[in-house]
């Protein structure tokens, strides 16, 4: 698949984070994170396990509270919002969970309709059904509509998870490791899905991943989280041309060559 190139609107910031800090007990996870995401842009966040990537995006939707620093999403300071304002903001953010987090006790259809039914009471049954089928078709899984999540494969669950966020037509998409645990071919499918979503729904996205193929194919900009901060940001080549050994080892692991393994 070719690499996607599109133009981000550098005049409009959708996410702006300054000097964000977060600890759990004595564990100092985020230590001064700065990040800006512009409208229409895909930012990839790379980083080792446990560096706080999931924590970072959970703070953006108000699931976790920051200890220090400023987090502004779509012009609103997330930790200063009341319940109703937070609800309004969350409607505009799609959050795709690391483990999909589909509702086990509901069918795929009910999973998708769940946020729609509760947030838009004026919709008729038919409209909800149409919307559900459309997003499911967009992720290529219309045939699973009456299945239970337990009957789906990992890749299908990821897709349904993405569809469930798309149904609210978000302005921002947050993907937490969309390709983790998937085979390379399915991963490529997910990568193109992320790009298609971006084109169709005109979203800005943050994509958290360990997978450099995913990073290269979907990211306009790469940000590398090291020791609780973003050390370098830039295009894929800019980031991985750096001399920093920790960045290089990240790269080498992903593209390990045949003679190195033998």
């Amino acid at each position: 698949m070719k690499r996607r190139i599109h133009i981000a609107d550098k005049t409009q910031k959708v996410i702006s984070i300054e000097n964000l800090e977060k600890s759990f007990g004595t564990l100092h996870v985020l230590r001064g994170v700065d990040l800006e995401v512009f409208k229409g842009e895909n930012v990839v966040v790379l980083g080792r396990s446990g560096t706080g990537k999931s924590v970072l995006i959970k703070i953006m939707v108000g699931l976790l509270k920051p200890d220090k620093g400023m987090v502004s999403v779509l012009g609103q300071q997330v930790d200063a919002l009341n319940n109703n304002q937070l609800r309004q903001l969350r409607l505009k953010i799609g959050f795709s969970f690391q483990n999909s987090a589909l509702y086990d006790s509901m069918t795929v259809r009910e999973n998708l309709a769940f946020p729609l039914v509760r947030n838009f009471k004026q919709l008729t049954r038919k409209e909800i059904s149409t919307a559900t089928e459309k997003v499911l078709d967009d992720v290529g899984l219309l045939h699973t509509i009456d299945q239970m999540p337990a009957e789906l494969s990992g890749g299908q669950r990821k897709r349904v998870g993405i569809a469930r966020t798309l149904i609210l037509q978000p302005e921002i998409m947050l993907y937490d490791e969309p390709t983790a645990g998937l085979d390379p071919i399915t991963s490529l499918d997910i990568n193109s899905l992320i790009n298609e979503v971006q084109e169709q729904y005109h979203t800005s996205s943050i994509i958290i991943t360990h997978d450099l193929t995913c990073a290269r194919q979907t990211g306009d900009r790469i940000a590398m989280l090291l020791d609780g901060k973003f050390l370098t940001q830039g295009t894929f080549e800019e980031v991985f041309d750096a001399d920093d050994e920790r960045i290089q080892s990240f790269y080498n692991y992903n593209f390990i060559t045949a003679d190195e393994t033998s």
Partner: peptide
């Protein structure tokens, strides 16, 4: 057990970020 497993698999968080109230439901 049911709510516990929903909690640890982040289903409760998922309800929250989709702007629905998990407590209510």
């Amino acid at each position: 057990a049911e709510l516990g497993s929903m909690k640890v698999t982040e289903q409760i968080d998922a309800m929250e970020v989709s702007a629905t109230n998990p407590y209510k439901f």
